[in-house]
Simulated assay, not measured.
Amino acid sequence: MSVLFWETKTLEQMTEQEWESLCDGCGLCCLVRFEDEETLEVIPTRVHCKLFDPDKCRCSDYANRKKYVPDCIKLKPGNIEELLWMPHSCAYRRLHEGKPLPMWHHLITGDRESVHRAGVSVRGQTINETELADPEDALDYAAWDLNEDRSDWDEFED
């Protein structure tokens, strides 16, 4: 059995290609979120960023996203800890926390569709933020269920 890079390297030791390959393509980090000012709880919605491709569950212009979405956050090994809104199933977060990749992750299955078959992605479940009259209208699409940890979902059958 070959040694897998995510099992032998720290996040800081990964090449850019290895780092980028960790993205599972669930789309959860591309959703509009709000933070409750009183409780500091993060409220996810089923409204996606204007650059998100809801069929591919990927950014439609990843290389230039900061030009069109200036507040888009670039994930780096050094900022994961402060991004408490990141999904519990996210490979970046899981590896940072010393947890293994979920069994449905494409680096385990060899298939980028496994995240969708497992029911973890938001494919076909969101609307584009450009369809809203006001950004605050995204709260009408609050999706508390997206806060649950989806990393060990039983639904996955390869």
Rank of each mutant, 00 (worst) to 15 (best):
E20P: 02
W85R: 01
W85N: 05
E129S: 09
D149L: 06
C57F: 01
V3R: 13
L107K: 07
Q13C: 05
V115M: 01
E7K: 10
E155S: 15
R117W: 12
I127T: 00
A143W: 00
R65D: 02
R150C: 05
E16A: 15
R117S: 05
I43E: 03
G78W: 09
S60H: 06
L28I: 03
D24L: 02
D154C: 11
R150Y: 09
K67M: 04
K50A: 07
N64H: 11
E155V: 10
F5T: 05
W104F: 07
R150F: 14
W144K: 14
I108G: 01
T15C: 11
H116T: 09
P102S: 05
T8Q: 14
D55F: 10
D71Q: 12
C59F: 04
S60I: 00
Y62H: 03
R58D: 11
C23R: 03
Q17H: 05
V3A: 12
A91P: 09
Q17P: 03
L139T: 02
E136F: 13
V120L: 08
D111K: 12
H116A: 11
E113R: 12
V47K: 03
L146R: 01
G124R: 06
R46D: 08
M14R: 01
K76V: 07
E113Y: 09
H48M: 09
A118E: 00
G78I: 00
T109Y: 06
N128D: 13
M1Y: 06
S2L: 15
T15A: 00
Y141I: 12
R123Q: 11
T8R: 10
R58A: 14
E20K: 13
K66I: 08
D140P: 04
V32Y: 05
F34M: 03
C23T: 08
V42P: 00
R93F: 00
G27I: 03
A138L: 09
R123T: 12
A143V: 01
K56P: 02
